[in-house]
């Protein structure tokens, strides 16, 4: 049986990304910051737990979780940080200022859930 040679690969070359290699959120995604209470080192301030906001920028490249880095992890599994914007009115019930005033912060991927 003869096969005609093709100038194109027979299968499309689909690249599969490793876990964590690509950010799971993009600018514009609405997110909620997690509410867990770590014992020991954390880098998500208490005042922001459970607050909702919007991703404004993906921080690249992926990096080590700084909460684990605090215990000596200098390398290993990397995920993305995301700069998120949260209206100050949403954080503080009695906020004095403009409804457009916002808090911007980098949050690690493991602390964010899509809403």
């Amino acid at each position: 049986m003869t096969q005609e040679r093709s100038s194109q690969p027979r299968k499309s070359a689909t690249v599969v990304f490793a876990w964590g290699e690509r950010p799971i959120f993009q600018a514009g995604d609405r997110i909620r910051i997690g509410t867990r209470t770590p014992i020991g080192h954390y880098r998500v301030p208490t005042y922001l737990r459970g607050k909702q906001g919007v991703v404004v920028q993906v921080i690249a490249p992926a990096a080590v979780d700084n909460e684990e880095e605090g215990y000596g992890r200098n390398a290993g599994k990397r995920l993305h940080y995301y700069r998120v914007a949260i209206p100050l009115e949403e954080i503080w019930p009695d906020y004095v200022g403009s409804p457009r005033d916002g808090l911007y912060i980098e949050i690690y991927e493991t602390w964010l859930e899509r809403i």
Partner: peptide, 28 residues
């Protein structure tokens, strides 16, 4: 929590129609 009051302590008054953005650094 009160960036406009903090700014005022430095003598800086931001009009209400200007958006104040506070960036809290926590990572790299």
């Amino acid at each position: 929590i009160e960036p406009r009051a903090v700014l005022a302590e430095f003598g800086t008054i931001i009009p209400d129609d200007v958006e104040v953005r506070v960036s809290d650094s926590t990572a790299m």
